[in-house]
Amino acid sequence: MPSTVFPSHAVRFGRLAPTISVSDIDQAMHFYTGILGFTKVFENGSPVGFAILKKEDAELHFSLHKGHKATVQNVAHLLVHDAEALYQHLQAHRVKIIKAIRDADFGLRCFVFVDPDGNRIDVGQTL
């Protein structure tokens, strides 16, 4: 039987950006640009139904889905250089934190917050 492992030399993978469903794209863009400092680099539709935001190496895609309901799973994992500073910043802006900051046994200082749609974003900093 042939191997099912994709040969690593065959194709170089580029960036991978999560698409997050939101019920109100203007509210999502306001949160991610206003509180987290992302910049909108693309939008599509009239009214807008899809947008791309970037900040440094991080990129998020937003897709409008009226009636979107968040899940209990994390939709994105954000690696940062100073988790404590981001944690304090989010607390100062009254962003809902659902898992408090901690040093985990898997080598990350981490926490989880939710955006206005209830989407869970897991934040980590390598210890």
Rank of each mutant, 00 (worst) to 15 (best):
D57F: 08
S8Q: 15
L78V: 15
D26V: 00
K96M: 08
F38Y: 10
D26S: 10
H81W: 05
G34V: 05
H30Q: 11
L90K: 01
D57K: 14
G49W: 00
V72G: 15
S21Y: 06
K66M: 12
T39G: 05
K66A: 14
L108M: 14
L108W: 14
R102D: 09
V41F: 10
L16Y: 07
N44T: 00
A85D: 09
Q91F: 10
F13H: 07
L64V: 02
R102E: 06
G14Q: 10
Y87P: 01
G49Q: 01
L78A: 08
F106Y: 15
G14W: 03
D82R: 08
A100P: 07
I98C: 13
F38G: 00
Q91E: 14
L60E: 00
G34I: 03
T39F: 00
H61W: 08
D105H: 08
H65T: 11
I98N: 11
V11H: 11
F6P: 00
L78T: 09
A58V: 13
L16H: 05
T19A: 09
D57N: 09
D26E: 12
F6I: 12
F106H: 13
F38K: 02
K99E: 13
P18M: 02
E59M: 15
A100D: 14
K66C: 05
H9V: 02
A28H: 02
N44R: 05
V72W: 11
L60R: 01
H61K: 03
S23H: 14
K54V: 12
A83H: 01
T39Q: 11
P7Q: 10
K99P: 04
F50G: 00
I20Y: 06
K54A: 09
D24G: 11
A76D: 05
V41Y: 08
V72D: 15
V72L: 15
I35W: 00
S23M: 10
V48S: 01
K69C: 11
L90A: 07
H65Q: 14
A92W: 04
G107P: 03
E56H: 09
L78P: 10
F38W: 07
G34E: 06
Q27P: 00
I20Q: 02
T33C: 13
A28F: 01
R94L: 09
A104K: 06
I25C: 03
T33W: 01
I25G: 03
H61R: 05
M29F: 02
D103I: 10
I20S: 04
H89I: 06
T33H: 03
F106E: 04
A70L: 07
K96P: 06
L64C: 08
F38L: 09
I20A: 06
L108K: 07
G45K: 06
P7W: 15
K66Y: 10
K54W: 08
S8R: 15
G14C: 07
N74Q: 09
D105V: 02
H30E: 13
L53F: 04
I98P: 08
A83M: 04
V48L: 06
D57Y: 05
R12V: 08
E43F: 11
K96Y: 07
R102Q: 07
A51C: 04
R94I: 00
A70D: 02
F13T: 01
I20V: 11
G37E: 01
